[in-house]
Design a protein around this nucleic acid. Structure first.
Lengths: 340, 340
DNA sequence: GTGAAAGCGCTAACAC
DNA sequence: GTGTTAGCGCTTTCAC
C-alpha cells in the first residue's frame, strides 16, 4: 500500500461521512447547531482518516489567526524563558497561542523577525524593550493589532507597555547600598550598547551615587562566555586593580554569583569587608553558599500581564487599556548586602 | 486622518505602482525575470505603503510553508535552548524558520501541541525523544513531512533520529567510575517516569555496575524546585543516611553542582574521599570552584544535524537519509572523578 | 439543522 | 518581461 502523499481535506471527511463540507466544518469547530447523529458520524470519519484541519486555509477564510508573536532577544538568558512561561500560562486560558521569535539582541534581526511574524497576521505582538528601529516601529504601528512592549517602562511605547523602570531599579539599589554604608563601589556588567535595560539601571545607579557625591571607582564590561566564569575573572581582576573597593554591583545575577564565589574563595568577609549585589532574582542560583543580594524583575508577572492585555484586546478591540503598566521590583538583601 | 483598519494587499501595491498583481508578487518574491524599471517602481510603492505580504494566502496558494515545527519538553532546562540555537543557526542558511512548541514533559500536551503545529502544515518536524503516544506517532506518520526525533537513539524512530544513546552514556560513566576505583555508589536524579532519557542512562549505569557485582547503595529522586538547592539538600541527606558512599552520580549537572558545593562546604576531599559526576556539560557552571565530571550530550550538534536533515529533505524529498544518527558523547573528568 | 455559493489574498501555469 | 485565469482549503453568508 503506497502512502497517500496528498494531505487530507475537509472534502475527504465530507465524502467519508456523507455529510456536507460545511457541516463537517461546523462540527470540527464546535460552531452552530449540529445534530448529535451527524456530529458523531463526522467525528468518527475524521478520526478514522486521521484528518488534521488546515489552519492556513481556515485563517485565510476567517481572517483570524490565533497566534501571538512573542519577540525576545534570547532564549539562553533565563529571564526570557520565565517571561515566556508567564505568557503561556495566561494564554492557556484562551485559544491564543504564543509563537517565539529570537533577535539575538540585534536590531536588524529584530526587524527581520518582526516582518516574518507579522506576515502571518498574528492577533497580537509582545516584544521585549522599547528601543526599536524606525522600520520596526512603523511596522508595529501599521499592523493594526495590539502590541505590548515588555520588560521596560522607561520610554514611550508604540501601543502599550508592561515592565519595570530599570532606571528606578538602579536608583533603588544605589540607595540601599549607600544606606548600608558602602562608598567604594565597583560595577561589572555586559557591554551596554547591546542591552538598554542594563544601561538604564546603570544610569539610575550612578545618578543616585552622584547625588551623594559618590562616584563608581572601577568598572568592567564583558560579552560572551560563561557568565559565572566571567564574573569570577572580572572580580579577581578588579579587586587586584582596586583593592579598596567595598562593594561590587553586577548587572546580572550570574556574573554576581561568579564574583561571590571568588570572594568567598579568597576568604573575604562578606558582607562586612565587601558587599555584593546582582540583578534578577535567578532561582537557579538558590543553592549557592550565600544568597546574593538581588532585585526581582517581576518576569513571570510581566509575561502574564502582557498576555492578558493581548487576550482582552483580541476579545474586545475597544477594551480599555492602561498604556503603561509599571510593576515594582523588590530588593532581596540576601546575605551579601548588610554591614555587619 | 482615520487609520485604515484593513491590512494592505497585493492589489493595493499593484494599484499604487500601476503594475499587475502578478508582477508585483514576482518582484516581492524575487522570482522570474522582471525589468529593473518595474522592479524599482514596485519596491518603492510597497515600501511607501508599508506593505507586509500575507504569508497565509501565499502558503495556501503555493502549498508551501517554510516553517519547521520544533517540539521540546521545556525551555527552562538549558539543554533545549542550546539545541534550539543549533537548529536556528543551521536553518539560517535556508529559508526555513523554526517554530517552537513546548510540552512540559506531558504526553497529552505533546499531542495537542503537535496537532496544532501540524495544522499549519509545516515543512518538517523536529521533536524531542522517541517516546510518544500512539496518536502522536500516527499524526507524525500521516503528516507526510520529514520528521526528526532528537536527543535519543535508544528506540525506533517514526522517520529518523539524531541523538546519543543514553543507555550507552550511562554505561560509559559506570565503567569510568568503577575503573577509578569507586564502589560505594549513590544516585540522585529526577523522578523518572517523566524523563525517559534519564531513565535510560540510569539503566545503562546500573547494568554495568551489576556486571561487576556492584549495586547502587542509595538513591533519591526529586521533582521541581531549584536544582542547585535540591542537589545540596539531597546530597546532605544521602551522606547522612549512607556515610560510606564514595561516589555520587547525578542525572544532571545542576543537581550535581549543588552536591559539589555541599561536599566542598563540608571540607570533604574530592575526588579522594568522594567522587562526583553529573550529565550534560553545562557551560553555565564553568565558574564553580571545581569542574564537575560530566558528559557532553552534543546538544548543539544534535540541533544542527536535525535541521540539516530537514533542510535537505525539503530541498529534495528523495534525498538519502540515515535513519539513525548516533553521536558519541565524551566524558569530561573535570576535577571530581579521579582517585588521588 | 443543513447545504450552496462566493471569496479570503495569494501563486501556478500558461498565454502573450 | 508581463498579464490572465483558475484555484489553494477553508469559512462566511444566506437560503432552505
Amino acid at each position: 500500500m503506497a502512502t497517500e502523499p496528498r494531505p487530507l481535506t475537509l472534502r475527504d471527511v465530507s465524502e467519508a461521512s456523507g455529510v456536507s463540507e460545511m457541516t463537517v466544518s461546523r462540527v470540527l469547530r464546535n460552531r452552530g447547531d449540529v445534530s448529535e447523529a451527524t456530529r458523531t458520524k463526522v467525528l468518527e470519519a475524521a478520526k478514522a482518516l486521521g484528518y488534521v484541519p488546515n489552519k492556513i486555509a481556515g485563517a485565510l477564510a476567517s481572517q483570524r489567526v490565533n497566534l501571538v508573536a512573542v519577540i525576545i532577544p534570547s532564549l539562553r538568558n533565563m529571564v526570557f524563558p520565565e517571561v515566556m512561561s508567564g505568557i503561556s500560562r495566561e494564554l492557556e486560558e484562551t485559544d491564543l497561542q504564543p509563537v517565539v521569535g529570537v533577535t539575538d539582541y540585534m536590531p536588524e534581526k529584530e526587524e527581520k523577525v518582526l516582518y516574518e511574524m507579522l506576515s502571518w497576521r498574528p492577533s497580537g505582538v509582545i516584544i521585549a524593550g522599547l528601543e526599536h528601529s524606525d522600520a520596526s516601529r512603523a511596522m508595529l504601528k501599521a499592523s493594526g493589532i495590539p502590541v505590548v512592549e515588555i520588560m521596560d517602562t522607561d520610554g514611550t511605547p508604540v501601543d502599550c507597555a508592561v515592565g519595570i523602570s530599570h532606571r528606578r531599579a538602579g536608583r533603588m539599589m544605589g540607595r540601599a547600598i549607600l544606606k548600608a554604608g558602602y562608598h567604594q563601589i565597583g560595577f561589572m556588567g555586559t557591554k551596554m550598547p547591546l542591552d538598554h535595560r542594563a544601561r538604564k539601571r546603570f544610569e539610575g545607579f550612578t545618578e543616585v551615587l552622584a547625588k551623594e557625591g559618590v562616584e563608581i571607582m572601577d568598572r568592567e564590561f564583558y560579552s560572551g562566555g560563561s557568565a559565572l566564569a566571567k564574573g569570577r575573572e572580572m572580580t579577581a581582576a578588579m579587586l587586584e586593580r582596586t583593592p579598596e573597593l567595598d562593594f561590587l554591583y553586577y548587572s546580572n545575577d550570574m556574573i554576581g554569583a561568579g564574583g561571590l564565589l571568588h570572594v568567598l574563595d579568597q576568604g573575604i568577609d562578606v558582607p562586612g569587608r565587601i558587599g555584593l549585589a546582582g540583578f534578577n532574582g535567578v532561582e537557579l542560583l538558590d543553592g549557592l553558599p550565600r544568597r546574593l543580594a538581588t532585585m526581582d524583575a517581576c518576569r513571570t508577572e510581566i509575561g502574564r500581564r502582557a498576555a492578558r492585555i493581548i487576550a482582552s484586546r483580541v476579545a474586545d478591540p475597544d477594551a480599555p487599556v492602561e498604556s503603561v503598566v509599571e510593576l515594582t521590583p523588590t530588593i532581596d538583601f540576601g546575605d551579601t548586602l548588610e554591614r555587619s
